[in-house]
Design a protein around this nucleic acid. Structure first.
Length: 1082
RNA sequence: GCCCAUGUGGCGGAACUGGUAGACGCAGCAGACUCAAAAUCUGCCAUUCGCAAGGGUGUGAAGGUUCGAUUCCUUUCGUGGGCACCA
């Protein structure tokens, strides 16, 4: 073998692009020099770039996570080079369900696992080279942080929304107003009817109860989405098609005391604020949809009185009851005797409750020991059909339980609701009991049912509907009430009673899941009652149907079959005659919801265009005092309680059924240690299992995930402040988040809540801006590209994709990492799982071809790719640039590792402009020429505008073009190259810093001066004009740029190719766009 | 059903306010260097007719506006996302 000294020298150690050493070296250097520390004091203008902080899950990062982080990192570094003081922090949304689920399964404390996960995340993030100032890290589960979450909650609790000023203010202003003018005046609820003197005479409890109806954070009994399997209450957006988003468990409605945020008060401002921020159209649209503003009017229809209408029917009869007897007659007798025995011995609790209920104390007449059917009821509110039962804690007694259930069932059949309390509840917590009773009473009180001094029943006279189309008033063919509507029982005629009861039973039997997932089915029932069209006296039948929702508008609609498809189908199904008020616009086969038709058969609206008639109709309705203009929102107040452990405790104590705010100096109220993470009694959270907590009467639910994330962007500004959540001076400096980057999945949750919190804090004068995020950039999701193999049922034979239809097969996921394109590595597959060791393959063309599908990236689908592996193999700079090169940032796309080589090659090519593998240093100090300057400045221009617009994929390609051109020009000149490095720093910081220092620069490239684009280097004197004939390009002709039309015409027409195409004819017209093109029209 | 996106080579994608469609990269093909491989470099690469020169066709489909349309308008189909009986 020849001795060749060059072969024996390990050149690569110092000549080749050795990304591993370079990246480690500069990480350490930047860390040691605190290169990413950000100060709140600076001469420079500020810029705030924010990522949606991650929930630190146990699975670690996959290639999808860093996409947004890389984009924001590039933008931050770019802004820093442009001379801004850039805040670009990172933290962790570390409270949440998964950690708690994991704790239930393994017994490990969520704090421990969360801490561990965060360390993993940080390690992974640091490898990619992000410029976070870790000294500003926030963790929502840290007491120093959630102290202020609790504090802000107290501000919400202590505030109300003054609709006159459209802003939040201290609840004290409301109290003052009650003291001086009672319930009269702007912003007071209609239901509150009292004078200033009344107010002063109210007990403190009653006052607090009223105030609770105004607080921005308030407590109420409400129907919540209860998930038995998870043992918790879920937000609407955590429920998908009637099952939980996590785990897909069934979700039912349940009444519980809950905390809420009165976000509906902010509906209008949340809507209008969208016009002042730079979010994508689709994002704004999603929020608008969620808020769901609709303008229309409420109006009343009088009921036609006739002898059939029995306001308070009592159907009775044995028939209904027998069917639900679940025990045999013998047991039934025993139970009954046993129960009656018990009832005879009146308890203290019953007496205590009686003292608080009697004499209309809850504004409603109550009877005690009332007999209904075969039962003796402790307390009965007959008007509201609400029954109260008090018993000694027999809940665990099986027999008693069966008996109770049966009673509830029977009473339910008769239209009664039964509330049950234990003796202990009544004796120890009577206020809570009363609150609950009065809540349900209010809910069950008939709307138009006057309650006189003696509690006498007045007859039901009207039904109030909500409509956005009052112009169609003469097309109303029937009214529909929601089945839950309180008037249903009052207006149903004796004749229809049986049918209605059957229908109500049917509705109750259907779970939410059925109601939501089922294909549209037309169901309903006639009540027997008729209403009257106030304008023409027409008799209108009143129906009930599932398709009308109790929770929206008034829970009743006027149905116009010719204009609304649901009404149309309903009318068709039940053979209700349809009135046509739009002539030929209605074809009798489907409804036409147009607003453009001219009205007919509509008396005072005849001849008007529908869209114009809306205003006219509303005016008429208002003048006739039949109703009024009304705006409705789909959005509901946000449920703010979770029956969970791993969240912020509420700084609230319950005393005699009243919620009391803890003193702010006592914050944080720290999460206590628990032994078990399972739910507490009665669906309460795990905190209810702790005696010490319970004894202090502390709230046992915790705050939801979005509590901490609703204000974290403020804490980053002033993360260590112990005396306030964020100093006003500091928040005035950093102000709004200039660019916020994250996924669309938070469009309606997190983004609405944080916008609301910001508005409240602004109203209270705690910060100086009322929209948190000036500009929002949505990164698309990186999807996984899954691969499938097809196993013939019951065998170990796997058939290739193209042949699978010939067999009966199971589709199984195969790990994407052992498939090349779609060709399976069969040997790797056999080794993958023991089950597959004996796999046989049926090939096509000698290959096993996999099926493929784009799905969410997830471990269970074997389609994840770990960024760590790619950083190890290609380096962080390559990884960063490749993720950006994949395509537009906001577009979703499946991950494909294949192209990463190309980006890596580009960086090596860049490296070779500075260093040759063999010769070492090749860069020089020579002066650059025009061609080189032209390349440089074209690149500056392109990179600058692409970076500003978050068009990072085209920026990466511009870098490639630049390096290709410089290599072609053999340009190794420092004068050019160092400018290119500065442009590249945001994208590939490590290699840029290394080469920057090799060029002999002192100081970090992080603070270099961004090159300034100069037009003069790009100025051209002539251009290759494309010349087309009749729009088709036939040739290119080089023409001086200063040339004017006549001159150009002459040059073009004298061209041989043009002459050939003209075929001797003379052109009709010659179009010349200076600097663009020439088109000859023949 | 309604709303919002989106549709361009074998693949990811580019194309400024309408002005040379396919930049850049991947994959592929051919060649150089090498004993060989890797690395690197050079060329080709929408489709079709043609030896070539050159021509036809092409941005989901069909129309329209225009001297000129991937870009604007109308209709329609496919894909992705959101809302989902909201009166």
């Amino acid at each position: 073998m020849d001795f060749n000294p060059e072969n024996t020298i390990p050149k690569s150690l110092f000549m080749e692009y050795n990304f591993k050493d370079i990246e480690v070296k500069w990480h350490e250097h930047w860390k040691a020099n605190n290169a990413y520390r950000v100060s709140n004091v600076s001469e420079k203008p500020k810029f705030y770039v924010l990522d949606m902080f991650p929930y630190p899950s146990g699975a670690g990062l996959h290639v999808g996570h860093p996409l947004g982080y890389i984009a924001s990192d590039i933008y931050s570094r770019y802004k820093r080079l442009k001379g801004f003081n850039v805040l670009h922090p990172m933290g962790f949304d570390s409270f949440g369900l998964p950690a708690e689920q994991y704790a239930i399964e393994t017994g490990q404390h969520p704090a421990t696992t969360t801490e561990k996960n965060i360390e993993t995340f940080k390690k992974q993030l640091d490898k990619i080279g992000f410029c976070y100032d870790w000294e500003r890290e926030v963790r929502t589960s840290n007491p120093d942080y959630y102290k202020w979450t609790q504090w802000i909650f107290l501000q919400l609790f202590k505030s109300w929304f003054n609709p006159e000023l459209q802003k939040a203010e201290s609840i004290d202003t409301l109290i003052k107003s009650f003291e001086t003018s009672g319930a009269k005046g702007a912003g007071k609820h209609e239901s509150d009817q009292f004078t200033a003197d009344d107010w002063k005479s109210f007990s403190s409890a009653k006052q607090q109860e009223i105030l609770m109806n105004y607080r921005l954070a308030f407590s109420a009994f409400g129907e919540v989405n209860w998930c038995e399997a998870l043992g918790t209450v879920l937000a609407n957006d955590e429920v998908v098609n009637g099952v939980s988003e996590r785990g897909g468990h069934p979700v039912i409605k349940k009444k519980m005391r809950q905390w809420y945020l009165r976000i509906t008060d902010y509906a209008d401002r949340l809507l209008n604020g969208l016009n002042t921020v730079d979010f994508s159209d689709s994002m704004k649209e999603m929020q608008r949809n969620w808020i769901g503003k609709s303008e229309g009017c409420e109006m009343e229809f009088s009921l036609i009185q006739n002898s059939d209408l029995t306001p308070n029917p009592s159907p009775g009869g044995e028939g209904g009851k027998a069917s639900i007897l679940t025990t045999d007659p013998e047991t039934w007798k025993l139970l009954k005797d046993f129960a009656i025995e018990n009832r005879k011995n009146k308890t203290n609790a019953e007496d205590k409750l009686w003292q608080r209920l009697r004499n209309n104390q809850l504004d409603s007449k109550v009877r005690r020991q009332h007999v209904i059917e075969d039962f003796i009821i402790d307390f009965a509110f007959l008007n509201e059909k609400l029954l109260i039962e008090v018993d000694g804690g027999y809940h665990n007694d099986d027999q008693q339980k069966i008996y109770d259930d049966m009673r509830t069932h029977v009473m339910g059949e008769l239209g009664y609701e039964v509330l049950r309390f234990t003796n202990e509840e009544v004796e120890q917590n009577i206020e809570d009991v009363l609150t609950k009773i009065s809540f349900v009473l209010k809910e069950r009180a008939p709307l138009s049912l006057g309650r006189g001094a003696g509690g006498e029943v007045k007859e039901v006279k009207t039904i109030k509907v909500y409509t956005t189309r009052p112009d169609t008033i003469f097309g109303v063919d029937f009214l529909v009430l929601a089945p839950e509507h309180e008037l249903v029982n009052k207006i149903t005629t004796a004749e229809q009673r049986k049918n209605i009861d059957e229908y109500l039973t049917y509705v109750k039997s259907r779970s939410d899941r059925e109601r939501m997932s089922e294909v549209k089915q037309i169901t309903g029932c006639f009540t027997g009652a008729y209403a009257e069209n106030p304008f023409n006296g027409k008799q209108i039948p009143v129906w009930i149907a599932e398709y009308v929702l109790a929770g929206y508008g008034t829970g009743a609609i006027m149905a116009v079959p010719c204009g609304d498809q649901r009404d149309f189908l309903f009318a068709q199904h039940f053979n209700i005659p349809i009135t046509n008020i739009i002539g030929e616009h209605f074809n009798g086969k489907e409804a036409n919801p147009t607003k453009e038709a001219t009205l007919q058969h509509s008396e005072f609206l005849d001849g008007l265009l529908m869209k114009d008639a809306i205003k006219v109709a509303i005016e008429k309705i208002e003048n006739a005092r039949l109703g009024k203009r009304k705006v409705n929102f789909k959005m509901r107040d946000a449920g703010f309680s979770r029956q969970r452990y791993w969240g912020e405790p509420f700084p609230i104590k319950w005393e005699d059924g009243l919620a009391l705010a803890m003193n702010e100096t006592q914050l944080p109220l720290e999460l206590p240690h628990v032994e078990k993470y399972g739910p507490g009694p009665e669906g309460e959270g795990p905190l209810a299992n702790i005696a010490e907590w319970k004894n202090q009467q502390l709230e046992t639910s915790t705050m939801p995930g979005y509590a901490g994330s609703s204000w974290y962007f403020l804490r980053y500004m002033d993360p260590h402040n112990a005396s306030t959540f964020c100093d006003r001076k500091v928040s005035d400096y950093w102000n709004q988040v200039d660019v916020y980057i994250g996924g669309t999945e938070h469009a309606v949750g997190h983004l609405l809540y944080s916008r609301m919190w910001t508005k409240v804090l602004y109203d209270l004068g705690l910060i100086g801006f009322d929209e948190p995020f000036k500009r929002l950039v949505n990164q698309g999701m990186i999807q996984g590209s899954s691969r499938f193999v097809y196993r013939i049922k019951g065998t170990q034979q796997f058939v290739s994709f193209g042949l699978k239809n010939q067999y009966e097969v199971d589709e199984l996921h195969a790990d994407v990492n052992m498939v090349d394109g779609v060709e399976l590595d069969t040997e790797a597959f056999k080794k993958w799982k023991p089950d597959y060791a004996n796999a046989e393959f049926i090939l096509e063309d000698g290959k096993y071809i996999c099926g493929s599908e784009v799905e969410k990236m997830s471990k269970s689908k074997f389609n994840t790719v770990n960024p760590d592996d790619l950083v190890l193999k290609y380096g962080a700079d390559t990884f960063r640039m490749y993720e950006m090169f994949l395509g537009p940032i906001e577009q979703s796309k499946p991950w494909d590792t294949k192209g990463i080589e190309g980006v890596h090659r580009f960086l090596r090519k860049l490296w070779r402009l500075f260093n040759d593998d063999l010769k070492g240093k090749v860069w020089n100090d020579e002066k650059a020429n025009d061609a080189e300057f032209k390349v440089l400045h074209r690149t500056i221009k392109k990179i600058e505008s692409d970076t500003e617009q978050f068009s990072f994929n085209t920026a990466v390609s511009a870098f490639m073009v630049c390096v290709n051109e410089l290599a072609d020009l053999k340009c190794y000149k420092k004068e050019i190259l160092e400018k290119v490095l500065i442009l590249l720093t945001p994208y590939a910081p490590h290699i840029s810093e290394e080469l920057w220092s090799q060029l002999g620069n002192s100081g970090s490239i992080l603070d270099a001066v961004y090159p300034v684009f100069e037009e003069k280097y790009l100025v051209e004197t002539s251009k290759e004009y494309p010349v087309s004939i009749n729009g088709k390009v036939r040739t290119n002709i080089n023409i001086d740029l200063s040339a004017q039309q006549p001159e150009v015409e002459q040059i073009v027409l004298s061209n041989d190719i043009v002459q050939k195409w003209l075929e001797g004819k003379s052109p009709k017209k010659i179009i010349f766009v200076k600097g663009k093109m020439v088109n000859i029209v023949m």
